[in-house]
Design a protein around this nucleic acid. Structure first.
Lengths: 235, 235
DNA sequence: AAGTGGTCTAGACCACGGA
DNA sequence: CCGTGGTCTAGACCACTTC
């Protein structure tokens, strides 16, 4: 691979690998070619391929098993690897996510701006509920502009039970990169109070997050509202 | 450097560099020797030194400036690099931290367990307030066991205005490694309400964090309570 | 035994910043 | 100009997993 762009070789290799992933060349949990083979393919040395793969491993796009190979990582929601830690406990329990509903809505001013769409643009709204064993701890709302995912159908969203990440990967070849989460405390509205069986005005933790494609374009906005009570939320 | 331990060379180099830092060989913002010089010193190649420094840069212990050198990073509180993002704004403002008070208290059951001390063990309690330009947004409480830092004096804590991180580094040679933060929403107590000029029972964001030494021993426990209102907290 | 990731080297060249 | 970080190579060896 010639050094054309004013860009390190290993960055170019990283992009080539991403492109190959997006074209479905290797499926989730499938092994990639060995570093040596990739080096031959891209016309670089094994060390350069390694550095590119290092980056993708750090981004959770790939994972490695020594002596075996390099694999395509599954697509996971950030909330799924988060924990609810009970007060006076060192380690918490993973959250379970369950699909609730999917509807088509129109973008408010604020949402339109986030997605760089016009006001009123059609959006998919997916709702899910968050549990730890034995208790409802939160609800989540996921929003994505219809215009950015033309092939997407409500049927598919339901089929995959609101796992938007995996859906976008499988149907649109889009891998999401998450921005940092943002946190707020807010008082439970009547709707939230009923859903989470708490009093109105009880304090709730709001976790919002924007996800983008590799180019930085905003794709998905998600808002989770959590009843923390005895628990702490550990991202 | 011979490969004695069952450990990569670059990990050993990383530890050597940390040891040198802890012995005060290089001060904050001072340049380290060049990668080539360090390579000679440790008897390894430049690439190996580089990989060791890469790790320390990723850990925010060092920083680099191309064409100039590698420097010792200042010691910064996690809260100082956090932002309060106004609703309907893409980017937030850094928080300012101001010293309030420092007293000596006795460990409750829970705190004693965290620090692996006996109940009632003496602790330092440092209080600080958190502002964004023009507004009080939170208060922070920092706790550390007296027994772990025998040389520490209240005078010094006051002198450094509650910058515990820098204090421990300068006086005790201890660099803190932070665990993941944990988040809760809670209702403002009377004390918090007065300090932050909100109503009692208003929802507040609680951010707790445990910091350890390189060996994993718990050193510092901190609890911040934030009025999020119009803002979101971005770590 | 063969193939994989994981480490390391010596040497090379480039890009940047300061003198 | 020089010295710094930043990149890249070719080749070597090790540690691990699988067959």
């Amino acid at each position: 691979m010639a050094k054309l762009a004013a860009q390190p070789l290993y960055q170019q290799v990283r992009k080539e690998v991403i492109a190959a992933l997006q074209q479905g060349e290797w499926q989730v949990d499938e092994t990639l070619p060995s570093e040596i083979d990739l080096a031959r393919r891209f016309g670089v040395s094994q060390g350069t391929v390694r550095k590119a793969l290092d980056a993708l491993v750090a981004e959770n796009v790939l994972y490695r098993r020594q002596g075996v190979g390099t694999f395509v990582a599954g697509v996971r929601d950030a909330l799924l690897s988060a924990c609810m830690v009970p007060a006076s406990a060192k380690v918490g329990e993973r959250m379970q996510v369950e699909f609730l509903s999917c509807v088509r809505i129109h973008a408010s001013e604020g949402l339109a701006e986030i997605f760089d769409q016009r006001r009123g643009a059609p959006l998919w709204q997916v709702r899910r509920q968050l549990r730890v064993p034995g208790e409802m701890v939160g609800v989540e709302e996921i929003l994505l502009p219809e215009a950015l995912f033309p092939g997407l159908e409500m049927r598919r969203i339901r089929e995959l039970k609101g796992n938007v990440r995996e859906l976008l990967w499988r149907d649109c070849g889009a891998r999401l990169v998450d921005d940092a989460a943002r946190y707020r405390a807010l008082a439970a509205t009547q709707v939230e109070a009923r859903a989470l069986s708490v009093e109105v005005n009880e304090p709730l933790l709001q976790v919002t997050r924007l996800s983008r494609d590799y180019a930085g374009k905003s794709l998905v906005w998600s808002v989770a509202v959590l009843k923390t009570g005895q628990f702490s939320f550990e991202p």
